[in-house]
Nucleic acid binder design. Sequence first.
RNA 1: GGAGAGGUGGCCGAGUGGUCGAAGGCGCAGCACUGGAAAUGCUGUAUAGGGGCAACUCUAUCGAGGGUUCGAAUCCCUCCCUCUCCGCCA
Length: 425
Amino acid sequence: MLDQRLLRDNPEQIVSQLARRGLTVDLTGLQLIAQQERDLEQRRSELQAEGNRTGKQVGQLIRGGAAADGPEVAALREQGNRIKQQVAVLEEEEKSLEARLREQLLTFPNLPAPEVPEGTSEAENVEVKRWGSPRSEAGLLEHWQIGERLGLWETERSVRIAQSRFITLLGAGARLERALISFMLDQHTSRGYTEVLPPVLVNSASLTGSGQLPKFAEESFRCSGDDLWLTPTAEVPLTSLHRDEVLAAEQLPLRYCAYTPCFRREAGSYGRDTRGLIRLHQFNKVELYWFTRPEESAAAHEQLTRHAEAILETLDLPYRRIELCTGDLGFSAARTFDLEVWLPGAGTYREISSCSVCGDFQARRASIRFKDADTKGTQLVHTLNGSGLAVGRTMAALLENGQQPDGSVQLPAALVPYFGGERIG
RNA sequence: GGAGAGGUGGCCGAGUGGUCGAAGGCGCAGCACUGGAAAUGCUGUAUAGGGGCAACUCUAUCGAGGGUUCGAAUCCCUCCCUCUCCGCCA
């Protein structure tokens, strides 16, 4: 959520920064509401002060011996009643203005960080680096072909259980998924992350805190009888792990990693990536999440991204790092690096991780602050998140990169203790 | 799901409807005492928003939201959460 003070003091900055995202916004209406709200607050609080004084006078008179039903007291009572009525009117107006203001502010995306490259679409994203030696022989299979051939999962029967875009892993496929989850979590916890296994049903406040609501309701599955949704990413429960908290400065940075299944409706992606593990309504992901001091978030972003890259490197999977341009940034992100893994069968790089720094955008929505012991007041924390990694896509990459001429798949050495073998098929 | 108990500041814990943002204690910080420390004493110790250059000041907040009242931590209603017992269940 955008800062109301920024709206008041420097609205041009909001307009110009959102313009970098390709958004044209007119803030005059919002500014007017904010101004009216402040005026109302002032009038209301003055009136309340008067009411408080009146109330006190009544108390003093009665304690001083005045008759509780005498004329003096009666006059003050009447005055108190009058003030109360006026306050009620102002309060109602103020509340509705406040609600309108918040409602609108919640629909604005984050401002891009200054260093984010300009651009209008993913075509203008910037490649930062490449790692590894991509295979490119002719005749390599795509991961869904390998999976089908080796019987790693069941697609048509999954439609019977649920619907399309769901998958049932079987045998070595299921085992590999489990091995990957354990492997990733062990890697991250060995670097100091605290492992979290959060609820995967989350309430509306949690989705609002991390930025999925109110704008992207159609992207999530919703439970009909309760205020609960299936989480689209562990970023949601992890943000709300500390929602409405004031953290002690010495706790920071807080670093969490969480495995969760993720649920996405993928509205509007009919016909794309219909085969295999790339785009499913339910997929597994290990997520990295940091809460930091504002001045530390930029360095943290690089570290978090490195931790995601370390998984790819340990699995010997070639990848490249892409910096998203302003036009391709996600709603809550101020700056994002995508990691794309090489899929030699498909002959393309595919996104396997997205590492973002959100500044105080989520912290303001979710009210997550910290306090230095020796200073007054609190500050908003900065939050960061990144996949470390998307598990299904990692499996796809392992299958394509490890495929052998005999149809089997060679697994990287790091995975052997987890999988209990070095080869599938 | 049924029955009961309870939710007060960082923590514990008081609070008869009227100077209660809230006693007292613990903790924490500063000062004093000390060679240094402990102990002791004194002082200070919430958050959010508004106004003010500032000192400061106004408002709100005792789980949340309504209500009664001139005035609510205190009375009433609804909801949420926690605990105990019963039922059900992995």
